[in-house]
Design a protein around this nucleic acid. Sequence first.
DNA 1: TTTGGAAACTTAACAGTGTTAAGTATATTT
DNA 2: AAATATACTTAACACTGTTAAGTTTCCAAA
Lengths: 214, 214
Amino acid sequence: MGIVERKEKQKQDIKKMILDASMKLFVEEGFDNVTIRKIADLIEYSPTTVYLYFKDKDEIFFQLSQVGFEKMLELNQNLTTIANPLMRLYKMGENYIHFGMTNPEFYDVMFIQLAPMDCISKMEELEWSAGNAAIENLKELLKECMDKGFIQKAPVEIVAMAIWGLVHGMVSLAIRNRLDHINKKVTSKEHLTKMMYQSINWLLGSIDTSIKKK
Amino acid sequence: MGIVERKEKQKQDIKKMILDASMKLFVEEGFDNVTIRKIADLIEYSPTTVYLYFKDKDEIFFQLSQVGFEKMLELNQNLTTIANPLMRLYKMGENYIHFGMTNPEFYDVMFIQLAPMDCISKMEELEWSAGNAAIENLKELLKECMDKGFIQKAPVEIVAMAIWGLVHGMVSLAIRNRLDHINKKVTSKEHLTKMMYQSINWLLGSIDTSIKKK
DNA sequence: TTTGGAAACTTAACAGTGTTAAGTATATTT
DNA sequence: AAATATACTTAACACTGTTAAGTTTCCAAA
């Protein structure tokens, strides 16, 4: 059965070629410039071949978003060494913001575009597991913060929504050019990122119950 | 000069017809289903006529976003009667969330879609005045809260970014179907909205310095 | 080794998109 | 009445995602 095995491998190879080509277009030219025909050109197949490996365009974007989640997970490796849960929460927020601001296309397809979610709702048995895992991660960290008395006890979903909302809100506003005049100075990407760090710092400072309030 | 006047009025009438038709498609069928040809069908003109009144599709979306800002401003009339600035801030957040959750298409074009911002950056002399005015509004309210001792003094842009980020983040995640599994229960639009209210309540409770902390 | 059939891939097309150049009516001015 | 300016349309260009039908390639059984 070496043949059927090799065939399967070839199939996976072409699938990967398609995703790599999509990724290249996606990162270099942005979401809207990923077209089936351009992908086909890059891998030197006809456009219809793409449909032999992916149900539709949404599925390609779903797969790209999965790659994004992997990249993000990798970035979060630096959290494991931080013992203090509130500091870990801060660093998590910093990682999130940094990821979004330096990989806007990935961030887009992971958290803004409808395509991947449409794909999930179309395909039975498929779900947003990577996203949900990230949410559960945040919720657990918050629970740890509460249990250890770093922040006041409160319904964990409510706080998680607030904190995720905070970082996602700032990053997505920036990506969609809504923060360009938040202050008088020129707001470069780098400057905005630093301001966001200050914002999460302000929030965590406000809810921190482990330090004496003056 | 009665004729040139009437001509000008007719021109404005057709412009309004185009916007009304766009709005109808936009609200009833969503952003992606607004096409020049469908607009033309509705107003019973040829597609090219639309281009005699608007530079391109982006300009139509820019105009629609402006209508959205007007609706939002109207909604915020209920703030004027609230004396306590922190309560005003809470109600402002509630208004914002309510607006976004009940007018997702408008919210989309105002704060998520790139089209209106692209229009602004293309047209010289055009700027995001409605959005910037809303930001200034928030900043002033925050300053009042700080001056009157309701919340700790902090750089107002940083806090504004955090709070706007918080509400925008939650609403845009909801609109883009990323909050569907934030908890085990079925998360209806109404339920999510209530949770968001609790989130802003949690935040404002955390930063409120006007009440004794236990 | 030849033949049958499955698998892989392409051609051509459908129905749609935003946008524009060129042409035709309509209305106003000279 | 003729010339001109305004309003509008026809036809087309260059794209898009997607699919039905046809072709080529490859592998297994006769």
